[in-house]
Design a protein around this nucleic acid. Structure first.
Length: 520
RNA sequence: GCUCGGUUCGUAUAACGGUUAGUACUCAAGAUUCUCAAUCUUGCAAUAGGAGUUCGAUUCUCCUACCGAGUACCA
């Protein structure tokens, strides 16, 4: 019997989702869609101390910007579903609201001898840890040390019963079996074996806030929500044996999901994984969307930096995966088709800004001039420019091969909307010499007054070049000086393109302004 | 420290025992152009090191080095 594919993305709302998290969500989504299954969003907010306001909304908005829409867990209005319905049978999808579910499972484990009550306080354990550290050792709550600690395994039954009644900071811990080899199979990494002697007795449930820890909540919810594959970050690999043991302890081995652990995204400069803290110090965003933390600190986002979501998704998909052929530009639909878990790369990937720029440029070029014009107009308006759409479209058509982001249109083509207010000093010194200035004046005057051909790029180009040649003027010098007068710098757009868009009156005016400003 | 992962040009990756080790980005040079960009062409550049297995190792095994993760009443 084969089950319907169901995968989940289960972030914890402790801050904005970073790009590594988005990639994990993306791979889950691609896998689900490819297999005709469901992609579920579940909020893992079992740590009551680390809740960050706005994080949950951020996560949903970021996924939505990327085109990753959960089938289950989030409703049409983008809210996490709290009450069960046909579409969302497992609601609530926020673990804090599933509180009552978990305790019985933890108790079931105790009843069957797979877990026990532990009464050591957090302070006591911290002290033990400090002690061990001072002796250059590591304290682990495991099958050896648990015999020397205060728990239902070492205490008399009456004492346990009394503590359960009278104290409120006890926990339920998993009783890790001794000297057992856990044999695991990871969809990406293959066969892995670990001896339980190297593992510790993890806390599963906390009496203090009556909430489970990740390990318990995760297994219980994945089981209840009928998850078939767990695709998550490599940081969970060391917990995999515990999770295997838990499925076994619950007797859920027959429906245990298959696991796939993704390698991490690394910092471009080498050391360590790309973390939330890196922020924009590295010269590129680590977050999909801009994030303002509760202290008011701003981190930039791909969206606000001008990336197209399709480009972002595409580049993220290729950070640790490839389709096995030479294609590099794939739409979401094509990614769904091409995706496969066994082509995921095992090693960690470093992000490259250049490649990211390249991706965005490719996507920008695939867009119509019409669409780009629509995106550019608001930027013009922010700069106080209001021009007719046809003119803007002509500018976009002319410069679209030169830009990476829509915002670049402004820097590249500003001179087509406003006259230069200054001239590059080096270029002026080189090209605006006394005799050359005279020639530029003459050339401009000829073009604007005497030239009677069509005022188009081609017409102007042919006539102007021809005229300069016939006068035996130095082509490069005159042209560059002309561009200096028109744009404020000697390098950039073609003279004929510039003139065609600017019109004869504006060309004449700008040359006159340059003559005035650059007169020695 | 211990446990578990990982290691191919600068970066992302391909080659799942036999290739002149391929591709893309970056970079460089040339072509083109009035300049710059774009474009086209060409080029630079890698199997971490050492043992083994094998007729033959990037590929399999072991050791070393390095990188990463985990080692919380965080996820």
């Amino acid at each position: 019997m084969s089950r319907k594919t169901r995968v989940r993305f289960a972030p914890s709302p402790t801050g904005p989702l970073h790009m590594g998290g988005v990639r994990t969500a993306l791979y889950n989504y691609l896998y689900a869609k490819q297999n005709g299954g469901d992609f579920i969003l579940r909020i893992e907010d079992t740590d009551s101390h680390r809740f960050v306001p706005g994080a949950e909304e951020y996560i949903i908005e970021a996924l939505s910007w990327c085109g990753i829409v959960p089938d289950e867990g989030v409703d049409a209005s983008g809210k996490v579903v709290e009450t069960p319905s046909e579409r969302h049978p497992h609601a609530p999808y926020r673990q804090s609201q599933r509180k009552p579910i978990y305790r019985q499972y933890a108790e079931q484990l105790i009843a069957n001898g797979f877990a026990y009550y532990a009464f050591d306080t957090a302070d006591e354990l911290a002290a033990r840890r400090a002690e061990a550290e001072a002796a250059k050792q590591t304290f682990i709550y495991n099958q050896v040390t648990r015999k020397t600690l205060r728990n239902s395994l070492t205490l008399p039954a009456e004492e346990t019963a009394r503590l359960l009644e009278t104290t409120t900071d006890w926990t339920i811990r998993f009783k890790m079996p001794e000297n057992t080899v856990v044999v695991m199979d990871d969809l990406i990494r293959g066969h892995i074996e670990v001896n339980t002697d190297t593992l510790d007795d993890k806390v599963l449930w906390k009496r203090a806030d009556e909430l489970p820890t990740y390990h318990l909540a995760n297994i219980v919810d994945d089981h209840l929500m009928e998850i078939t594959e767990v695709i998550r970050g490599e940081e969970w690999l060391p917990s995999l044996p515990l999770h295997y043991m838990l499925y076994k302890a619950f007797g859920w081995e027959d429906t245990m999901p298959r696991f796939a652990h993704l390698s991490l995204l690394l910092k471009p400069d080498g050391k360590g994984k790309l973390s939330k803290r890196d922020g924009d110090k590295l010269g590129f965003p680590v977050f999909p969307l801009r994030w303002v933390n509760p202290e008011g600190e701003v981190s930039r986002g791909y969206r606000e930096d001008g990336y197209f979501p399709e480009a972002f998704v595409n580049l993220l998909a290729f950070l640790g995966w490839n389709p096995g052929d030479d294609r590099e530009i794939l739409s979401m639909d094509e990614l769904v088709q091409a995706f496969s878990l066994d082509r995921i790369v095992r090693s960690g990937a470093r992000f490259s800004v250049e490649k990211a720029h390249w991706y965005n440029r490719e996507y920008l070029r695939m867009k119509s001039t019409e669409e780009l014009t629509g995106l550019f107009i608001p930027i013009l308006e922010q700069n106080g420019i209001h021009r007719e759409k046809d003119y803007v479209a002509a500018v976009v058509a002319l410069t679209r091969e030169r830009v990476t982001f829509v915002a670049d249109f402004w820097t590249v083509a500003k001179c087509l909307f406003v006259a230069p207010d200054s001239y590059d000093e080096k270029d002026a010194a080189k090209f605006w010499t006394a005799e050359n200035a005279t020639l530029v004046g003459a050339a401009a005057s000829w073009l604007c007054k005497d030239y009677s051909g069509p005022w188009t790029k081609v017409g102007i180009e042919e006539a102007l070049v021809e005229h300069i040649r016939s006068q035996e003027w130095p082509m490069g010098k005159v042209m560059n000086a002309l561009r200096l007068a028109l744009t404020g710098a000697a390098s950039g757009l073609g003279i004929a393109d510039l003139a065609a868009l600017l019109g004869p009156a504006e060309v004449a005016a700008r040359v006159a302004s340059a003559e005035k400003a650059l007169m020695k």
